[in-house]
Each structure stands twice: as structure tokens, then as C-alpha cells.
Design a protein around this nucleic acid. Structure first.
Lengths: 130, 130
DNA sequence: GAAAGACATGGATAGGAGTGAATGTCGATG
DNA sequence: CATCGACATTCACTCCTATCCATGTCTTTC
């Protein structure tokens, strides 16, 4: 269940994707924070971070559930649950092909997450080094 | 298909700071995932993400609690709690100066987080384009 | 049509996390 | 020494979440 923001099941990605202001450049706004946090929450779990990495590094940036299951000691419903969380956070797309369901990493979401930290490191180093 | 554990653990990770292998390059190892997840968990909360951003973008990349409190509608103990979480995750350092306590962003932690996504976006775009 | 395989969903439970009120600690000040 | 101010800690409460078992849906195959 989504907490407050009235809306559909899926996260309105525009909020999260519009964030893109490196954390160190200026204080992130409340709205931007609320937009990115669901994505961060999604990957702030070992199984889900690994799932995303497995999908990303898999052939074509996509993988079916059957490809992913063997990597974990978790039950199939649990993996399915984690994939659903990643999907609802807007990090991966779902695509059903015959019997199998493929999960595909969303480039825009990856870029949005990356943009959070791109300049953060160097800025912090400036402050520390000098 | 799959192996028991994904990838070689080539990187010595102390506090998860050494993880630094982009998610899309190869499947992140269990150890690496467990190393970064605490940092991700720490920023996967609106108040803490904003706190980190406020500290990072503040003068000198540091700020005392009194600087941060006015930005929130939360109680002082709650802010103190969130700062403690950020500190225990290795994202910020604590430094007491007289009556005030200053929190300083850790450059290495920022760099570690940034490195997770550096190549992720472009790689995902490649996958999408092909 | 029946059976099997691939995933998803619902229910139930144990542990974790965010929050504030009350309280404690430490330094500064009179 | 007494007091005040800046933060931290403890406690208690509520809500959320990760997990599994059982079951459901849909597709393929026999």
C-alpha cells in the first residue's frame, strides 16, 4: 500500500525522476526526497539490491524469474514479492512472454538514482581535502 | 545458468565502503550487497535523505544539529535519532565543539554510493537500445 | 479437457523502524 | 554551585516489512 500520496498503485515516476539534483549541490526539497525515497527503499534490501544487479548485468538487461531464483535461498513467493517491490518503485518493468515473466531494468530510474550521487563525492572531497 | 554464490569476492570491504562495483557491470556479491545496504537503508528515509543533503550542501560540508532542526517538523530527539542512524551507517562523522555537535559528510561513503550507479545508467540504456 | 509448470496473491507471524514524551549528560554562564 | 541550553538516550507505542505456506491464475503440453 502506498502511504499518503493519493495515486495509482505504481509510483508516479515523474516525481522521482525529476529529482536529479545531486545531494551536495543544494538541499534536496521535500518533494524531491519523497520522490526518490521509494526507489532507495526498494534497493535498501540485500535481496532486492542483488536482484536489480542481476537483472542489470544479465544479457540484454533483462531476466526472467526462473533465471533469478537459483541465486537465492528464499522461497519463490518471497522473490516474487521483492520483484514486485522493485517494479512498484519504478526500477524495473514487467513483461510476460509465454509462460515466463521477464523483468527489465528501467534506464531512466537507473539514471535518476545515479544522478543523486554523481557530484556528491567530489563536492564532499572538496570540503574535506581543502 | 546460476551458481551458488554470484561472482568472486575480489574486493575487501570494510564497512561496505570498498564495494564500488557498479550494479550493472556484474552481479553484486552477497557480501558487497550486505555492505552497502546499511548505507542505502540510512538514506531511504525522507528525513535522513534531506539531513544528508543539508549537511552535504552546507558550508564546509558540515552542520550542527541546531542548523538542521529548523528544516523539520520533527522533534529534536527524532532528528537526533536520524543523525545517529546516518552516523552508524558510516555516512557522516560526529564532532563535538563546545556546546554544539557537528555532523560532517564522509567523502568515502559518498563516493562508494556514487560508484554503485556510475555505469548503471549507461549500461541500462545500452540494453534498452539494443 | 487434464495435467504440469511458471509466477502471483492472500493470510499469518515475527522482527524492525519511526515517532514523541520524559529524562539524562555535558558544557557554558552567571 | 546553580541554571540554562544543546544533544543524546530510554521507553513505549504503532506501523511497516520480510518471510513462508497455501492457494490461485495463466499458459503450455499431452
Amino acid at each position: 500500500m502506498p502511504k499518503s500520496s493519493a495515486g495509482p498503485d505504481l509510483l508516479p515516476l515523474t516525481d522521482g525522476l525529476a529529482c536529479c539534483v545531486p545531494l551536495a549541490r543544494e538541499p534536496i526539497s521535500v518533494e524531491q526526497a519523497n520522490g526518490v525515497v521509494p526507489m532507495l527503499k526498494a534497493i535498501a534490501e540485500p535481496a532486492r539490491l542483488r536482484l536489480l544487479s542481476l537483472v542489470l548485468s544479465h544479457e540484454g538487461g533483462e531476466a526472467c524469474v526462473c533465471d533469478l531464483l537459483p541465486y537465492f535461498d528464499l522461497s519463490q513467493p518471497t522473490i516474487s514479492h521483492h520483484l514486485k517491490v522493485l517494479h512498484e518503485a519504478g526500477l524495473v518493468d514487467r513483461e510476460k512472454r509465454g509462460t515466463w515473466v521477464y523483468y527489465i531494468a528501467r534506464p531512466d530510474a537507473m539514471a535518476a538514482l545515479g544522478s543523486l550521487f554523481t557530484a556528491a563525492g567530489s563536492r564532499a572531497f572538496e570540503g574535506a581535502g581543502a
